[in-house]
Amino acid sequence: MTSLATCDRLTVRYPGAARPALADLTLALHAGEKLAVVGESGSGKSTLARALAGLLPVGTALSGAIRWSGPPPRPGRDIGTVFQDPGASLDPLLTVGAHLVEGLRAPLPLGRAEARARAAALLARVHIPDPERALAAWPHQFSGGQAQRIAIALAIAAGPHLLVADEATSALDVLVQAEIVALLRELCRDAGMTLLFITHDIALAGTLADRVAVLHDARLVEIGPAARLLAAPREPYTRALLAAQLDLASPRLVGTRP
């Protein structure tokens, strides 16, 4: 399997922070895979996403290296990013169409009409009903799940190799979350895109990803194939993370009657 990017002893420290947000992290991102990075708050998982997407704030101290197998990615074109809050990527004063047309024309040599046609096709790809009408609509007219679909359309507009989803489903209710996960799976399969899926939910990571990496206190605890890691975790921390996770087979904490 060819790697798309390799983090080699990557250490990231934010300005003014006492401890590094990522410490000595070595990890390969394979081309075409869906890699989930799991951790609790403060584990460094979002920092890893930002480092790979080239979105670390100015003044961040970085040591070690991120090596790309091909030419270094062009920001906004080769890497798409989706965040927890779709409002962060959508300007309330621009129509959905204006977002997408701008997102398409900035990196690609497209005419206005052509960009508009492609924008409608993008909305259809993320399953927004009636794309033509949606182009003229404003971000606030969509529900959280629909807005996240539009944010995903915007992220993949330029045809990136890598899609970084940073807690992209965390603010959504479970039903919508399942739909977005299905959409991400479908987009990666159809476009051969690599997915870096950042989440705090190890069970959700297991349903989507090929491989799962567990981060704790800025360090990589364990990485492995999703099925193996969830069924037979090697590290105590991963076991603890799984033990804290509830599913419908977990023992109930109360009796049947008060």
Binding site: V174, L175, A231, A232, L242, D247
Partner: peptide
Amino acid sequence: RRLIAAVPALHRKDPPV
């Protein structure tokens, strides 16, 4: 039924303590 289906199963080998 959809809410039940949306809960990812963990397929634990041994029940957690």
